Amino acid sequence: MPRALPEPSVDSFDLTVVLSALAEPGRRALMTELYRGSEPIDCAVVVEKADLGLSNPTISHHYRVLREAGLISTVAEGRRRIVTVRRDDMERRFPGLLNAVLGTRQNQPA
């Protein structure tokens, strides 16, 4: 049975924490891949696409930092982790931030 991993509420988002999470190149590459792609997606697929050459523990750490900053939601389904960018929540709290840092989303609805 799927279970959502803990994440901060929109009201508790901290700009310093969000920017710090996005400042690290590996996390920014993961977020860019998520932001520009289709969602929800298995986190392993994103890692393959981004081809970062990082160890599994490092990648797990990056996903945890992104989740704890409020940038992504993660649902555990057995050994799989399905991730989704918290676009609406981020836009409500920090309008335009994700687009400014990560670029225009390629799969935007017309």
Rank of each mutant, 00 (worst) to 15 (best):
H61I: 04
V101A: 05
E68Q: 15
R86A: 04
R36W: 12
R105A: 14
V10N: 12
T32W: 03
S20W: 01
R36Q: 13
A21G: 04
K49C: 05
D42E: 09
A76T: 09
D88Q: 12
R81E: 02
R93E: 12
T32M: 02
E39H: 12
E91R: 07
H62K: 07
R64Y: 03
R79G: 08
D42A: 14
P8G: 01
D14K: 03
I41V: 15
T104F: 09
Y35M: 06
A110R: 15
R79P: 13
D14I: 00
T58M: 13
R86S: 06
E24C: 09
R87H: 07
P8V: 08
P109K: 15
R67N: 00
L15Q: 05
G53W: 02
D11E: 15
P2A: 14
R27W: 04
D11Q: 14
T32E: 06
F94G: 00
H62I: 07
E7A: 13
A76V: 14
R87M: 09
R81L: 04
R81P: 02
E48C: 10
P8F: 06
V83W: 03
M1G: 11
L54V: 11
H61M: 02
V10R: 11
E48V: 13
S20R: 08
G96C: 01
Q108G: 11
L19C: 08
M90D: 01
S20C: 06
E7Y: 14
A21K: 00
S38V: 09
T74G: 00
M1R: 11
L98D: 06
A44W: 10
R105M: 13
N107E: 14
T16A: 14
L54S: 09
V18H: 04
M90T: 03
S9C: 05
A100W: 01
P57F: 07
S60L: 11
P25Q: 05
A4V: 11
M1E: 08
E48P: 07
E48T: 15
L52K: 02
T74S: 02
P95Q: 00
A100C: 04
G96P: 12
V45R: 09
E91V: 03
D14W: 00
R64A: 08
R105P: 04
I72W: 01
L66E: 01
P8D: 02
I41S: 08
R3S: 15
F13W: 03
R79Y: 09
V18M: 02
G70H: 01
A110I: 11
P109R: 14
A76E: 14
C43H: 15
P95C: 03
E7I: 10
E77L: 13
P109E: 15
P40I: 03
L5H: 01
L22N: 00
L97C: 01
R105N: 10
R87F: 03
R87S: 08
S60E: 13
G26S: 12
R27V: 05
D51L: 12
F94W: 01
A4Y: 09
N107R: 13
E7D: 11
